[in-house]
Simulated assay, not measured.
Amino acid sequence: MSYQFDFSPLLTYWPELAAGIVQTLRISCIAMVAGLVLGIALTALRMSPSRPLRWLAVSYIELVRNTPFLVQIFFIFFGLPALGLRFDATQAAVLAMSLNCSAYAAEIVRGGVQAVPKGQVEAGRALGLGTADIYRFIVFRPAIRAIYPSLCSQFVLLMLNSSLVAAISAEELTYAAQMIDNRTFRSFEIFAVVGLLYLALSQCLSLVLAAIGRAYFSYPSK
C-alpha cells in the first residue's frame, strides 16, 4: 500500500472543525427542544376525542416516519421555494430536524402517557385538581420520567443525523470536513477524525442528558 497517512494538515484547519462542532450542537439543541414541544402537541392531537384532529396527527407522524430524512431536507430547502417559502441552509436544517424529531418524539411521549394508570387521573380529579395540573403533575411528569431514556436516545440520533444537512451546505461539522477535504485531499484522515468527533459528541451529549434527567427527576412534584 503506497498511501502515506498524514494527519498534520488537519491541525491547520482545527478552528473550522471547532466551529463545525459548535454549529452542530447549536442546531441540534434547537431541534431537540422544538421537536419535543411539537411532539407533545402531536400527542395531544393524536389522543384528542376529535377524529379529524387524530387523523391529522397520525397522517403527519406516519408521513415523517416513513420517508427518508434526506428527502425531507431536500423538500424543505429545494421544494418549498416553489410555494414561496424560502429558507437559508441553516434555517432549513433546523426546520427539517425539528419536524423529523417531533414525529418520533410524539410516538415516544404517547407511549409514556398511555402507560400512566387511569386511576391516577381519576384520583387527581377527586382531589380537585384542574385539567392543566392533572396533565402537568399526574400524566406528563411520570410519563416523561418513564420515557426519558428513549427520548435521550432519540436526541443523540438526531444529533448524529445532523450530518445529513451538509447536503444543502448547512455549515456544521460534516460540511466543514467536506470543505477541508476539498483543500487537503486527505479523505481518510479527515473523516476518521470527524468520526471520532461525532463519537465524542454523542458520548458527551448522553452524559449531559443523563445529568439533566437525574437533576430533574430527583425532586418530587410540588
Rank of each mutant, 00 (worst) to 15 (best):
103 A>L: 05
11 L>I: 08
125 R>W: 14
18 A>T: 13
34 A>C: 13
125 R>K: 15
203 Q>A: 11
100 N>I: 14
195 G>T: 02
70 L>A: 04
154 Q>S: 14
71 V>Y: 07
173 L>I: 08
148 Y>E: 10
118 K>E: 12
66 N>A: 02
211 A>I: 01
36 L>K: 11
93 A>Y: 03
184 T>H: 04
42 L>W: 03
178 Q>E: 15
157 L>W: 11
138 I>Q: 04
108 I>T: 05
23 Q>L: 12
187 S>Q: 11
190 I>E: 07
137 F>S: 10
172 E>A: 01
102 S>T: 12
84 G>Y: 06
175 Y>W: 14
136 R>I: 01
93 A>K: 11
183 R>K: 11
93 A>T: 03
29 C>A: 10
85 L>W: 12
18 A>D: 02
17 L>W: 08
51 R>E: 14
198 Y>T: 00
112 G>S: 06
135 Y>E: 06
158 L>Y: 07
164 L>V: 11
84 G>A: 05
89 A>F: 11
38 L>H: 13
14 W>I: 12
153 S>M: 03
15 P>R: 09
167 A>H: 03
176 A>H: 06
57 A>Y: 02
210 A>N: 05
193 V>I: 10
187 S>E: 13
108 I>Q: 07
119 G>F: 15
136 R>L: 13
202 S>F: 00
184 T>R: 07
82 A>I: 04
183 R>E: 15
